[in-house]
Design a protein around this nucleic acid. Structure first.
Length: 925
RNA sequence: GGGCGAGUAGCUCAGUUGGUUAGAGCGCCUGCCUUACACGCAGGAUGUCGGGGGUUCGAGUCCCUCCUCGCUCACCA
């Protein structure tokens, strides 16, 4: 019965802005997002830990839609596990993002007419830290506003003292194990950022350039006029120290050991033989520029060639180390691309430019500023990767770690198999300083956990390495450093390491994910997580990746403010298939987020119906109701609830491997969040709202015992629906759940966020039957509605209908009032003499018509089809069973085949039972 | 160039080991302000499942081939 309590009235319109903030604060105040070490069953507690470490957003800027997606996915998973009773821990964090952040501040300084050199290192770092403090704070607020249920007491920052200590410890340990070394070689150099880059940070993109064919004249008079080489980078020729040919190349065998004259520089360089040269490509002659090309560097090493550097760090031509006077004065100081043009012109004039042809090739660019990277000889620190990669490779191969979607596992394995050493030193100011000190006078090098000031052998002052570490050198420790490493006996590591899921975008699979796995094994002898879930990228309707700089971005806060966090979350989860990109229209937020907004409104209105019609008075517990109390719609919706719970559970999947390693049958199951969202949505909208709720209106209005049953069942199924939806739409579900007239109000959890996840009860035969029968009722209603629509019967006009059904006369007679209500018709059941179904509709003006009712009433045909299907299945099953009983088959066929056949048999049996059940319910035999 | 993936309704995508009539959301058409909801309700239309070939009683699903996109890696100057 409707309640008189005004406190339970809901406003007609859901206003997320008014409710979300307040609910979030209450959750935090209640401490439900905080995980405790002592509750973990690895640490004496009674709960299974479930841990997610957040990919720490870069502090360069506030969050964009990609972060919205990433953090929503993580929050859905962590809230699901929290409701399942796990000790759920989601560790939030921020990444100092070395090179990216430094770029931002440099741009600011440039706009102010100054530069970092003028500011000095200390002031620059301070200024950057101030910037980071502001942005970082804003990012954390944004995460809260989308509902992220992180344990904020553990918020980590890669440049914090404790994480910095972990970084230093990792460096020293690897150095002591011989896995970090100082190398002199050609690395990728960004002439704009003025730092070296790792292979991953120098990203290929295809460009159309030119291939210049240049003739080098022989130094001595010879039968051959000269040798022709092809290059895409003529400016580097000033650093040439040799021409190389393949040792077996008959064309040039007589020339090896002779000299050519390097054009422009006019110096003699030798012709050498090296297997590196591919005689079938081009002219089979390669110019060797050891200081500006990694391959040429290797050749240079083999042949003990000089390695002249002909460019400044900024990419201007110059006579650097070993260059002598190779670069003529009129080229010195000229930018590399300008010099390229100039040199080409000079060669043209001297007749040494044979020809120029267009050339498609991949050019590496700096991943932060997109400047063309220049290979450059320099001293850097490297991590020896092969030993680290070995266990990381094995982990994915043997199923200790799975990567979803599955196809990324091959990409991961492919990359690790051919991994090269990792350049970790950066010539930047923003980051962890390399923990190495040099004593210049006595030439000693110290790698140290603690700050050093004096040389241990001579006592004089030492200087620390100027470089900082690659920002990913701190990120790769994140799962361990946030839990207490290097203190291996910390409570955090004991309770929560290894963690469970790592949820991120594929872009950082190599940068971060693979290295974390290596780091986990290197420092903890254990994988950091068992599941890597790679979700798609947020793109606009033209499939262009959203970004602020392209102007096609969406600010998640705009969405939260306009439509609510739940609308954002639902839209994102529902629209994202496994590993598929999420397409949103930045020009039309209304259209993009309508699915979530509309569904939230639907939930709200169901809530309003409940609170006004069911009221606030306690309802009977579902357990108190006996089978006899329940009407057909009751049993139907309870059955639907059961299948929905099962569907949601199946879509979410196993949370962890059942036995340490993923078994094949569970390995790629679960985390199908869009399927989970769709199941829950269908239940709420298409089952509860469209049918069940409508069916209860009359009963509730009438009151009495049956009214009480309807109140109880409706409340029960909606309560469960809110539980299922809470991980996706935490705010609105919490708001509504708090006001539900639950039977267990006194005993239940204070918050839906920590309420129990629903359990699917096994469907009884009665439930199954109810579901089939109610489907018939629904079909009857649909058929009558169709009549109304097809014959354009005005909505106000009532019609009379007679439903004839040979088999289910009782069913339709019993539910005639309900069918009538839902179809706005006066319904009675007719004579059972006709096998063909029909609605005999009488219009109020006296005319009448007989309308066939499609598949519903033509039971003979329907049953015939079902029976023949059943028969066929029966035959197939018999032959299959016979085959399986045949020893000749079971002993000779491969075990896997036999097993597959057994499984098939089981499936078919189940299908047969299902079908038989249906035939029985429908056809009555 | 190596490796991988995708092509299903106008759009974005589901479709589990081959098996009833290929689904959903959005969009579209028609009629409705029906006492929770027009951010809604009811009804409706729409697919050579990229092309071709094959295996099978049966193919969107398996095999071959071609076409078109995408991802990822890469030292062919």
């Amino acid at each position: 019965m409707p309640t008189t309590q005004q406190s339970h009235e809901l406003p007609a319109q859901y206003d997320p802005g008014q409710t979300e903030r307040a609910i979030y604060d209450r959750w935090v105040a209640a401490g439900i997002f905080s995980a405790e070490e002592k509750r973990s069953n690895r640490n004496g507690g009674d709960r299974q830990p479930f841990v997610i470490v957040m990919p720490p957003p870069n502090v360069t800027a506030v969050l964009h839609m990609g972060h919205g997606l990433n953090n929503t996915v993580q929050d859905v998973v962590i809230r699901w596990r929290r409701m399942r009773g796990d000790e759920a821990l989601w560790i939030p964090g921020l990444d100092h993002a070395g090179i990216a952040t430094q770029n931002i501040i440099e741009k600011q300084l440039a706009a102010e007419g100054t530069a970092r050199a003028e500011l000095g290192r200390e002031a620059f770092v301070q200024r950057t830290a101030d910037f980071v403090e502001r942005t970082g704070g804003e990012i954390l607020q944004q995460l809260k506003s989308i509902g992220a249920s992180c344990d904020w007491s553990r918020t980590a920052y890669t440049l914090s003292p404790s994480l910095s200590q972990a970084v230093r410890e990792a460096f020293v340990q690897l150095y002591e194990r011989g896995l970090i070394y100082r190398g002199h070689r050609v690395i990728h150099w960004c002439p704009r950022c003025l730092t070296s880059l790792s292979d991953e940070e120098a990203q290929h993109s295809d460009e159309s350039g030119s291939l210049y064919h240049i003739t080098y004249a022989l130094a001595d008079a010879s039968s051959v006029a000269g040798l022709t080489v092809a290059t895409t980078r003529p400016e580097t020729m000033l650093g040439d120290v040799a021409l190389a040919v393949h040792p077996d190349d008959a064309r040039y065998s007589g020339l090896v050991g002779k000299f050519v004259i390097l054009p422009i520089s006019n110096i003699e360089i030798p012709i050498i033989a090296d297997e590196y040269v591919d005689p079938s490509f081009g002219t089979g002659v390669v110019k060797i520029t050891p200081a500006h090309d990694p391959n040429d560097f290797e050749v240079g090493l083999r042949h003990k060639l000089p390695m002249p550097i002909v460019m400044t760090p900024e990419g201007a031509m110059a006579n650097g180390a070993d260059a002598g006077g190779r670069v003529p004065s009129h080229l010195v100081g000229m930018d590399r691309f300008e010099a390229r043009k100039r040199i080409v012109r000079m060669l043209e004039e001297s007749g040494q430019l044979l020809r120029v042809e267009p050339h498609q090739h991949a050019v590496r660019h700096c991943y932060r500023c997109d400047t063309v990277v220049e290979p450059r000889l320099s001293d850097q620190w490297f991590v020896r990767m092969q030993p680290l990669a070995k266990p990381a490779l094995e982990a994915v191969r043997n199923g200790t770690i799975r990567i979803l979607p599955e196809r990324w596992e091959a990409v991961y394995i492919n990359w690790l198999e051919s991994i090269r050493d990792w350049n970790i030193s950066r010539q930047l100011w923003w980051g962890h300083r390399v923990p190495v000190w040099y004593c210049d006078p006595c030439g000693k090098t110290y790698v140290s956990r603690t700050e050093l000031s004096a040389c241990a052998s001579c006592g004089r002052a030492v200087r620390q390495d100027d470089d900082v570490l690659d920002t990913w050198f701190s990120s790769w420790l994140f799962p361990i450093s946030t839990l207490g490493w290097p203190d291996k006996s910390s409570a955090g590591l004991a309770a929560f390491y290894p963690t469970d899921d790592l949820i991120t975008a594929p872009e950082i699979l190599f940068f971060w994910v693979a290295r974390m796995i290596m780091g986990g094994y290197a420092f903890m002898d254990a994988p950091p997580f068992h599941t890597v879930y790679l979700h798609g990228t947020v793109r606009d309707t033209d499939h262009v990746k959203m970004s602020k700089s392209l102007g096609n971005g969406i600010d998640p806060l705009d969405v939260v403010n306009t439509y609510g966090a739940d609308a954002l979350r639902y839209t994102v989860i529902a629209g994202m298939g496994m590993g598929a990109d999420l397409i949103l229209d930045h020009r039309d937020l209304e259209k993009s987020f309508a699915p979530g907004r509309n569904f939230a409104t639907k939930l709200w209105n169901i809530g309003r119906f409940l609170l006004t019609n069911v009221g606030a008075a306690p309802v009977r517990s579902i357990d108190e109701l006996s089978d006899a109390d329940l009407t057909l719609p009751d049993r139907w919706i309870l059955g639907k609830l059961g299948t929905t719970i099962s569907e949601c559970d199946a879509a979410l999947g196993p949370a962890r491997p059942s036995n340490g390693e993923w078994r094949l049958e569970e390995r790629y199951a679960g985390l199908r969040l869009s399927e989970y969202a769709e199941s829950a949505r269908r239940f709420v909208w298409n089952d509860i709202a469209d049918w069940y709720l409508e069916s209860t209106k009359g009963r509730i209005a009438e009151g009495g015992d049956d009214g009480e049953v309807a109140r109880a069942v409706l409340t029960h199924v909606f309560d469960n629906a809110l539980r299922l939806l809470h991980p996706i739409m935490p705010f609105i579900t919490e708001t509504l759940w708090q006001r539900l007239p639950s039977p267990l109000a006194a005993e239940r959890a204070e918050f839906l966020a920590v309420a129990e996840w629903p359990t699917a009860l096994p469907a009884s035969a009665g439930t199954l039957e109810a579901m089939t029968l109610f489907d018939l009722v629904r079909e009857g209603v649909t058929a009558l509605r169709q009549v109304r629509s097809d014959y354009a019967i005005a909505p106000g006009k009532s019609i009379e209908a007679v439903i004839r059904s040979p088999r289910n006369e009782d069913l339709f007679r019993t539910h005639a009032p309900l069918i009538g209500r839902l179809a706005r018709a006066a319904v009675r059941t007719g004579d059972a003499d006709s096998a063909a179904g029909a609605a005999h509709v009488l219009l109020s003006d006296g005319s009448e018509m007989i309308v066939p009712l499609g598949g519903l009433v033509d039971l003979s045909r329907e049953c015939g089809k079902l029976r023949s299907e059943l028969e066929q299945l029966e035959t197939q099953l018999q032959s299959l069973s016979k085959r399986l009983r045949n020893e000749g088959f079971t002993s000779r066929a491969p075990a896997s085949v036999v097993e597959a056949e057994r499984k098939k048999e089981e499936d078919w049996r189940r299908r047969r039972e299902h079908l038989a059940e249906k035939v029985k319910a429908l056809c009555g035999d």
